[in-house]
Amino acid sequence: MSMVAGIIALAVLALAFGLLLGFAAVRFRVEKDPIVEQIDSLLPQTQCGQCGYPGCRPYAEAIANGDDINKCPPGGQSTIEQLADLMGREAKPLDDAHGVEDVKKVAYIREDECIGCTKCIQACPVDAILGATKQMHTVIADECTGCDLCVEPCPVDCIDMIELQQGPERWKWDLEQIPVTQLATEVKS
């Protein structure tokens, strides 16, 4: 008797909860996962493609779908750590198959040598190069993300990636890097 009672009780309970879950599944359906947006906002938006995806957003989508978070050299370790935080994963060192972290650079066109082919203009993902066909091109340094995508297409090799000039305002207190030898002989005793 107790056996039958147990079986019936459990079955009825299960039925009730099943109905409840069915109801909840329809009623509280979650529409879309905004995680891609959050990832995208952490990426440096250089659009350099070093991660193997055409742009930052595709990479963000890939991360959301489980790709590794250590494929973004421009973002460097700090971006990896932020991504690790966001995704609840472990921060790994940058995968150097995708390149290495570098100082911030901007593209610079040696204007004497530019032949005005516009190839770099087409290569620039953020439209930071000014110029027109057969006219000398120039890089808007403030808009340049330093992705260096313009370097390779240049037929005359007139684009350099130069280190971003930093003034005292943006100095990062790296005391060891001050060139102390400069003008050192000025003091005569």
Partner: peptide, 20 residues
């Protein structure tokens, strides 16, 4: 919605029955 609810409920009940 009703069909889904009914389906879920019955499947769960069936499992409960067999388990018990």
């Amino acid at each position: 919605m009703m069909t889904q609810m009914r389906r879920n409920g019955l499947i769960l009940a069936a499992f409960a029955l067999v388990s018990t």
